[in-house]
Amino acid sequence: MINNTSFLLVLRFILLVLLQVLVFNKLNFFGYINPLVYILYLYWYPIKQNRTTFIILCFFLGLCVDIFSDTLAINAAATVTIAYLRPTIMHFVFGVNYEFQSFKLNNSTKAQQFTFLALLIIIHHLVYFTLEIFSFSNSLLILQKTIIVGIATLILGMLFSTLFSSKKE
Protein backbone atom coordinates (compact mmCIF):
# COMPACT_ATOMS: atom_id res chain seq x y z
CA MET A 1 0.00 0.00 0.00
CA ILE A 2 2.77 2.43 0.93
CA ASN A 3 4.71 1.50 -2.18
CA ASN A 4 1.62 1.98 -4.24
CA THR A 5 1.13 5.50 -2.85
CA SER A 6 4.76 6.54 -3.35
CA PHE A 7 4.74 5.11 -6.86
CA LEU A 8 1.66 7.17 -7.65
CA LEU A 9 3.30 10.27 -6.18
CA VAL A 10 6.47 9.83 -8.25
CA LEU A 11 4.49 9.13 -11.42
CA ARG A 12 2.32 12.18 -10.84
CA PHE A 13 5.46 14.27 -10.21
CA ILE A 14 7.01 13.28 -13.54
CA LEU A 15 3.80 13.57 -15.54
CA LEU A 16 2.94 17.01 -14.15
CA VAL A 17 6.45 18.37 -14.84
CA LEU A 18 6.35 17.05 -18.42
CA LEU A 19 2.81 18.34 -18.94
CA GLN A 20 3.87 21.75 -17.67
CA VAL A 21 7.04 22.15 -19.73
CA LEU A 22 5.97 20.44 -22.95
CA VAL A 23 2.38 21.64 -23.20
CA PHE A 24 1.48 24.53 -20.94
CA ASN A 25 4.75 26.47 -21.18
CA LYS A 26 4.23 26.65 -24.94
CA LEU A 27 0.61 27.71 -24.78
CA ASN A 28 1.29 31.48 -24.74
CA PHE A 29 -2.40 32.25 -24.88
CA PHE A 30 -2.87 35.97 -25.74
CA GLY A 31 0.90 36.21 -25.79
CA TYR A 32 1.72 35.63 -22.15
CA ILE A 33 -0.79 33.35 -20.44
CA ASN A 34 1.01 30.15 -19.51
CA PRO A 35 -1.02 28.41 -16.79
CA LEU A 36 1.14 26.81 -14.09
CA VAL A 37 -0.83 23.60 -13.74
CA TYR A 38 1.90 21.68 -11.91
CA ILE A 39 0.55 23.26 -8.69
CA LEU A 40 -2.12 20.54 -8.81
CA TYR A 41 0.54 18.29 -7.31
CA LEU A 42 0.12 20.15 -4.04
CA TYR A 43 -3.64 20.04 -4.37
CA TRP A 44 -3.68 16.26 -4.80
CA TYR A 45 -0.90 15.42 -2.36
CA PRO A 46 -2.14 13.20 0.53
CA ILE A 47 -2.89 15.07 3.71
CA LYS A 48 -1.53 12.63 6.28
CA GLN A 49 2.10 12.70 5.23
CA ASN A 50 5.37 13.87 6.67
CA ARG A 51 5.58 17.64 6.23
CA THR A 52 9.36 17.66 5.86
CA THR A 53 9.26 15.26 2.91
CA PHE A 54 6.40 17.23 1.41
CA ILE A 55 8.26 20.56 1.50
CA ILE A 56 11.46 19.07 0.11
CA LEU A 57 9.52 17.29 -2.63
CA CYS A 58 7.75 20.51 -3.59
CA PHE A 59 11.06 22.34 -3.71
CA PHE A 60 12.36 19.83 -6.24
CA LEU A 61 9.11 19.98 -8.18
CA GLY A 62 9.55 23.72 -8.59
CA LEU A 63 13.23 23.32 -9.38
CA CYS A 64 12.51 20.78 -12.13
CA VAL A 65 10.08 23.16 -13.81
CA ASP A 66 12.66 25.95 -13.38
CA ILE A 67 15.44 24.01 -15.06
CA PHE A 68 13.23 23.28 -18.04
CA SER A 69 11.90 26.78 -18.47
CA ASP A 70 15.11 28.71 -17.60
CA THR A 71 13.44 30.71 -14.86
CA LEU A 72 16.32 30.44 -12.33
CA ALA A 73 14.63 29.28 -9.09
CA ILE A 74 11.42 31.32 -9.19
CA ASN A 75 9.09 28.33 -9.41
CA ALA A 76 10.95 26.62 -6.56
CA ALA A 77 10.54 29.64 -4.29
CA ALA A 78 6.84 30.00 -5.05
CA THR A 79 6.10 26.29 -4.71
CA VAL A 80 7.97 25.91 -1.43
CA THR A 81 5.98 28.85 -0.07
CA ILE A 82 2.59 27.27 -0.76
CA ALA A 83 3.91 23.91 0.44
CA TYR A 84 4.71 25.54 3.77
CA LEU A 85 1.39 27.40 3.93
CA ARG A 86 -0.76 24.45 2.81
CA PRO A 87 -1.82 23.27 6.32
CA THR A 88 -2.78 26.84 7.22
CA ILE A 89 -4.85 27.19 4.07
CA MET A 90 -6.51 23.80 4.64
CA HIS A 91 -7.34 24.78 8.19
CA PHE A 92 -8.88 27.99 6.89
CA VAL A 93 -10.90 26.27 4.16
CA PHE A 94 -11.99 22.99 5.76
CA GLY A 95 -12.00 24.02 9.40
CA VAL A 96 -10.89 21.42 11.94
CA ASN A 97 -12.40 18.68 9.76
CA TYR A 98 -9.29 17.99 7.81
CA GLU A 99 -7.39 16.73 10.83
CA PHE A 100 -9.63 13.66 11.11
CA GLN A 101 -8.38 10.36 9.72
CA SER A 102 -11.42 9.92 7.51
CA PHE A 103 -11.12 13.26 5.79
CA LYS A 104 -10.78 13.08 2.04
CA LEU A 105 -10.66 15.87 -0.50
CA ASN A 106 -13.43 14.27 -2.53
CA ASN A 107 -15.78 14.30 0.45
CA SER A 108 -15.62 18.07 0.78
CA THR A 109 -17.96 20.35 -1.11
CA LYS A 110 -17.18 21.78 -4.53
CA ALA A 111 -17.01 25.27 -3.05
CA GLN A 112 -14.37 24.16 -0.53
CA GLN A 113 -12.28 22.47 -3.19
CA PHE A 114 -12.53 25.58 -5.35
CA THR A 115 -11.47 27.91 -2.52
CA PHE A 116 -8.59 25.64 -1.56
CA LEU A 117 -7.23 25.54 -5.12
CA ALA A 118 -7.83 29.26 -5.64
CA LEU A 119 -5.91 30.20 -2.48
CA LEU A 120 -2.99 27.96 -3.47
CA ILE A 121 -2.91 29.54 -6.92
CA ILE A 122 -3.18 33.15 -5.75
CA ILE A 123 -0.30 32.84 -3.26
CA HIS A 124 1.85 30.88 -5.69
CA HIS A 125 1.34 33.31 -8.57
CA LEU A 126 1.86 36.35 -6.40
CA VAL A 127 5.25 35.08 -5.21
CA TYR A 128 6.12 33.87 -8.70
CA PHE A 129 5.43 37.13 -10.53
CA THR A 130 6.87 39.29 -7.75
CA LEU A 131 10.16 37.44 -8.05
CA GLU A 132 10.03 37.36 -11.82
CA ILE A 133 9.31 41.03 -12.41
CA PHE A 134 11.04 42.20 -9.24
CA SER A 135 10.38 45.92 -9.29
CA PHE A 136 7.83 47.81 -7.27
CA SER A 137 7.33 50.34 -10.05
CA ASN A 138 5.70 47.50 -11.96
CA SER A 139 3.41 46.36 -9.16
CA LEU A 140 0.39 46.88 -11.40
CA LEU A 141 1.89 44.47 -13.92
CA ILE A 142 2.51 41.95 -11.11
CA LEU A 143 -1.14 42.16 -10.06
CA GLN A 144 -2.41 41.99 -13.61
CA LYS A 145 -0.35 38.90 -14.42
CA THR A 146 -1.23 37.24 -11.11
CA ILE A 147 -4.94 37.68 -11.70
CA ILE A 148 -5.09 36.78 -15.38
CA VAL A 149 -2.68 33.83 -15.32
CA GLY A 150 -4.23 32.78 -11.99
CA ILE A 151 -7.69 32.58 -13.52
CA ALA A 152 -6.33 30.49 -16.40
CA THR A 153 -4.60 28.12 -13.98
CA LEU A 154 -7.73 27.91 -11.84
CA ILE A 155 -9.96 26.97 -14.78
CA LEU A 156 -7.54 24.31 -15.99
CA GLY A 157 -6.95 23.11 -12.44
CA MET A 158 -10.68 22.64 -11.80
CA LEU A 159 -11.02 20.83 -15.12
CA PHE A 160 -8.18 18.47 -14.32
CA SER A 161 -9.34 17.81 -10.78
CA THR A 162 -12.86 17.00 -12.03
CA LEU A 163 -11.47 14.78 -14.78
CA PHE A 164 -9.26 12.71 -12.50
CA SER A 165 -11.19 12.84 -9.24
CA SER A 166 -13.02 9.53 -9.58
CA LYS A 167 -9.82 7.58 -10.18
CA LYS A 168 -8.11 8.97 -7.10
CA GLU A 169 -10.04 6.72 -4.70
Binding site: I55, I56, F59, G62, L63, L72, A73, I74, A76, A77, V80, T81, L131
Partner: peptide
Amino acid sequence: LLLISCIF
Protein backbone atom coordinates in the same frame (compact mmCIF):
# COMPACT_ATOMS: atom_id res chain seq x y z
CA LEU B 1 14.80 26.28 0.90
CA LEU B 2 13.41 29.75 0.17
CA LEU B 3 16.85 31.21 0.79
CA ILE B 4 18.43 28.74 -1.62
CA SER B 5 15.97 29.62 -4.36
CA CYS B 6 16.42 33.33 -3.75
CA ILE B 7 20.20 32.99 -3.93
CA PHE B 8 19.89 31.12 -7.22
